[in-house]
Design a protein around this nucleic acid. Sequence first.
DNA 1: TTGAAAGCGCTACCAA
DNA 2: TTGGTAGCGCTTTCAA
Lengths: 344, 344
Amino acid sequence: MSSKKAPTMSDVAKLAGVSSMTVSRALRSGTSASAKTRAKIQAAADELGYVLDSTAAGLSTRKTGFVAVTIPSINNANFAQTVQGLTEGLREANLQVLLAYTGYSLQEEERMVQGLLQRRPEAIVVTGGVHSDKCRRYLAESGVPVVEMWDMPATPINHVVGFSNKQAGKTMAQFLQQQGFRKIGFIGGNAAIDVRGYDRRRGFLEALDAYGLERHRYWQSDQPVLTMEEGASAMETLLEQYPDTEAVMCASDLSAFGAMMTCVRQGLSVPDDMAICGFGAYDISGNSVPEITTLDVSALSIGTETARIIVAALSKDNKEPISAEVVEIETKLLVRPSTEKISS
Amino acid sequence: MSSKKAPTMSDVAKLAGVSSMTVSRALRSGTSASAKTRAKIQAAADELGYVLDSTAAGLSTRKTGFVAVTIPSINNANFAQTVQGLTEGLREANLQVLLAYTGYSLQEEERMVQGLLQRRPEAIVVTGGVHSDKCRRYLAESGVPVVEMWDMPATPINHVVGFSNKQAGKTMAQFLQQQGFRKIGFIGGNAAIDVRGYDRRRGFLEALDAYGLERHRYWQSDQPVLTMEEGASAMETLLEQYPDTEAVMCASDLSAFGAMMTCVRQGLSVPDDMAICGFGAYDISGNSVPEITTLDVSALSIGTETARIIVAALSKDNKEPISAEVVEIETKLLVRPSTEKISS
DNA sequence: TTGAAAGCGCTACCAA
DNA sequence: TTGGTAGCGCTTTCAA
């Protein structure tokens, strides 16, 4: 931690005996500079331990190289994969992800977006299609490409990469119904905190209605039920209240696993006594015994697709109007032993 | 996406009929400005949709508000918790985490650090105590506080928040030995890619030596063995090669769970036929049946402690020399049913 | 290929 | 409490 001031370009220029403009060019690629001066300047820069100040460079070029991203939680394998896809997809375009977490709060999202905008990102990515009014305005007026991901908003702000969470819920209900289950429950909060989880719940229950099945076997909670622990205790309550339940859909694979463990502890067999399915294709669903049926929403490709759209939007000559892309990610039902119907 | 140029302070100043200097003050707190002009300026800013350019502000104040952080992988609950602790601890000081992933590669770490330095962070946090020579030099000469976390480096660069991974391995070996297990195996790569996992392995095997126990029952792999899937297949091999193994330590809770599932699939009882312990206190270890013995390294508090050190170092008047803090995080062995020794 | 001047948007500093 | 001036470190633009 040497605390003397960091050397600047003109320090390098002085040492190399050239102008700072020449240093600027020599240190970048794709610029005109003779090999000889390039080497001389590189040597001077190394000697001084010079590090480019991209803050100042950005002020001049009006390009920060940032892409702002908000996700509900960093501690979630699905969002982590999306961020990984984003990071990798943006790297080749020399764009860096600037990440913020909203904790599933729209108010926090608004605050985060406001803060991120001050960093002058070249694009903004947000999770979901529901935002506070102020937040929507910030995004719409930001002047840069916006991508909403992980959902299919009714009125998109700009680009979209996602899938219908309501349809996802319906798909799971249809599958369980087709497997022959009739007394079907749902574990997952009924509050709109986790907007997308709530949409899946709505789609699921609507589908049960459509099939003429009972739809009262759900877990009442005003909190999202996403963790293993929450799934485990939700299943305990469900078994008490509706011991005749045959199958349960859970808001995530993690809560599905927790629910399954409650069954195991109580001596119930999965799927014979209780069928269970989850959501999100987390590792756990493919490695538990029995493996858990789930819906793979391809979290990684949500990230790579989003990156692709951003790179395309930024490389387009700013002249032509950039048309909003709406990409619907294909979901894939992974049918596994946890929902096998015993033929009777 | 209105694409006209973003309004600047002087635009706001013009509209409000004041100088841009007054706008600058009015928009910040803790500055002198009359309530009347403040309101007038705020109104003008709102009307124009003005957003502060913190890039330019940073150039002037020489403070970016960034803390650069590198972690091996974003898709890892332990590191995610650390980042969460960091984020929360830095928020009150108005510092924002700028995150990069190294993929467990020292070379990638070097590249990431080099890139992050160009953003002029006010502090840098890296994972582990082993770095490339160049990377060490970058960090040491960065001129800002550096924190190495998740390990206890022999020769720290500056601050440290971590624990001894080697000691952690020893602790687990000692525990298994005390439980009465004698034929003990280890699942986890033997390559130095995951430096900290490798240290745990070394500590573990050395302890077995010290107890006079056989130490050949380990999984040979030049890759880290951290996932559920890797743990599962490693256990398959181990059972083939050393069917008499009584207990196994795994490099992470995830691979421990995978290993346990292999046992379940093969009809082996845990812990009666095979005791298993993991590392990291991931959710899975506390929610599986049986629950898995693990070492809790308090990933969250590694983050909060690191944040505390950074905030302290930055708030100190730059006059007095900032002494390097070395904080050893206390690890906690969580003894669970997966390692219960059947009294015989 | 190189250099000089101007300016990116903001704030520190000093003066009114 | 307010405003003018200068400058943060870099790149754009134009000229040599």
